[in-house]
Amino acid sequence: MLRVLVVDDQDLFRGGFAMILGVQPDMEVIGEAADGAAAIRLAADVKPDIVLMDIRMPGVDGVTATREICAQTSAKVIVLTMFDVDEYVYAALGAGASGFLLKDIRRDDLVNAIRLVAAGDALLAPSVTRRLIADLARRGHPVPALAARLGTLTDRERDTLRQLARGLSNVEIAGELYVSEHTVKTHVSNLLSKLGLRDRAQAVVFAYESGLVIAGEN
């Protein structure tokens, strides 16, 4: 059973999300919070598996709350916002978020997103992914310090990271590299550990910023 904490300063959104998730057979809403400070306290008390986090809230915002919760607990945070704005993507990913979705997401897609993140995948809304990659492309040259860290990876781990940057799932990567899904999971775990990355979302950003993948290439 996935234990979910819902955080949003608007009663309508918070109650709606809690209602949707509360009827899922594999999920339990174990708490609700109306601001970041309450979310931090509640996450420490109830130990959720997943936190559904609003970005813009009075007082302690969602980015700050995400950073604290990821630092203090093992919870995975999915950020939900009405604003498709790049700086929020970077701030949320930098704070440790494993997913970034827009509030106009469909009910079934939201439920599936939570299951994906709980299983170890990262998730970005398609429009967010396009804007993220486009902005990374505009940044130009790779960051030398990041490029140097690629030397810690094996050839197969670099291949896996390239496929991650394309947004492929473990099953799809296995098909591309002609290996088992278990082998892909091992490569992903190893490369995250070697590069000091929290999850697949950070791996995607790293792949572009290190120069391993160039935006626009297949």
Rank of each mutant, 00 (worst) to 15 (best):
M1K: 14
L5I: 13
V7W: 01
Q10N: 12
A18S: 15
L21W: 06
V23G: 07
G31I: 07
D35A: 03
A38G: 06
R41D: 13
K47G: 05
M53W: 02
R56P: 00
A71R: 13
K76W: 07
Y88G: 00
V89D: 02
V89A: 06
Y90D: 09
A91H: 02
A91Y: 03
A92P: 04
G94F: 11
A95F: 01
S98W: 05
L101S: 03
K103L: 09
D104A: 11
D108H: 11
V111W: 10
A113D: 02
I114Q: 04
V117L: 05
G120Y: 00
G120F: 06
V128G: 01
T129G: 08
T129W: 09
R138M: 15
R139W: 11
R139P: 06
P142F: 10
V143P: 06
A148Y: 10
A148I: 07
A148C: 11
G151H: 13
A165Y: 05
N170T: 12
A174N: 00
G175D: 11
Y178V: 13
E181K: 12
H182P: 07
T183V: 12
S189F: 11
S193R: 08
L195T: 00
L195R: 03
R198W: 04
D199R: 04
A203F: 06
V205N: 05
A207Q: 02
G216I: 14
